[in-house]
Simulated assay, not measured.
Amino acid sequence: MDAFMQFMASNWNELLLKTWQHFYISMIAVILGIFVAVPLGIWLTKYPKAANIVMGIAGVIQTFPSLAILAFFIPVLGVGKLPAIAALFFYSVLPILRNTYTGVKGIDPNLLEAGRGMGMTGWERILHVELPLSTPVIMAGIRLSTVYLIGWATLASFIGAGGLGDYIFSGLNLYQPAMIVVGAVPVTLLALIVDYLLGKLENFSTPKGIRKQKQAA
């Protein structure tokens, strides 16, 4: 504990910098994943045959070892933050894609038919019916993906992307438990804080009727 406190006291500036690096690498990957996976998930609900193919491909990619994905991007993008973000982006897609597809597919068809009866266009049904009603399921996928990525982002230090993984792997190489703890504890706290904030965002963005149903359950 003394070694941990001494390390924290002498390296807190660097710790803040690496925590910020870790955070924005993870968040950029998640945001890119949201921009790709949510529209794709909605589109796939209209084409079930294509959905099976795309979900299968995404599932296979998800099984690839994290280090293998990172190594794959090195010849293409070099080392540093860019290949790390690209690799994490691939890992972010499946949970968000699957939940978006499941959430939209699970909407009562009568509600969609009511939207058509009101004269809504396809885009209007997506914006005013499908997305609001599937928000809790989509947000659950985003939360899961974000927590995973914050943990996986520690591997980014292998390719020079920085972040809290630098402390963990330096501690392992130098047999310094204090450095491992200094890297691991902020990663855990960061994941918990971001998950809590996303939970608040999910609650805020969920329509009141659905929110009351969840609270009653």
Rank of each mutant, 00 (worst) to 15 (best):
140 A>P: 14
112 L>D: 06
172 L>K: 04
124 E>N: 05
169 F>V: 11
176 Q>A: 13
179 M>F: 13
151 G>T: 06
139 M>L: 09
124 E>R: 03
178 A>N: 14
129 V>M: 04
188 T>V: 14
114 A>H: 04
184 A>K: 12
176 Q>W: 01
153 A>L: 11
193 I>T: 15
156 A>R: 07
132 P>D: 05
147 V>I: 15
174 L>D: 01
164 L>Y: 09
175 Y>E: 02
122 G>P: 00
126 I>F: 00
175 Y>S: 01
127 L>Y: 01
113 E>N: 12
146 T>I: 02
178 A>C: 03
196 Y>A: 08
170 S>V: 03
170 S>D: 11
130 E>K: 08
117 G>Y: 14
132 P>Y: 03
170 S>N: 10
147 V>K: 03
175 Y>G: 01
165 G>F: 00
197 L>E: 10
145 S>A: 12
167 Y>R: 07
149 L>T: 01
196 Y>R: 09
123 W>I: 03
187 V>I: 13
179 M>G: 00
163 G>H: 07
135 T>R: 02
176 Q>H: 08
139 M>K: 05
123 W>A: 01
157 S>A: 15
134 S>T: 08
120 M>H: 04
116 R>L: 04
185 V>Y: 07
182 V>C: 06
158 F>Q: 10
172 L>Y: 13
160 G>C: 13
123 W>V: 06
170 S>L: 02
139 M>S: 14
142 I>R: 11
114 A>C: 09
189 L>A: 12
140 A>D: 10
154 T>W: 15
137 V>E: 07
162 G>S: 12
151 G>V: 12
167 Y>L: 07
169 F>E: 11
149 L>R: 01
184 A>G: 00
190 L>E: 09
194 V>A: 04
189 L>I: 14
146 T>M: 07
134 S>Q: 10
164 L>V: 13
142 I>A: 03
132 P>C: 09
112 L>N: 12
144 L>V: 13
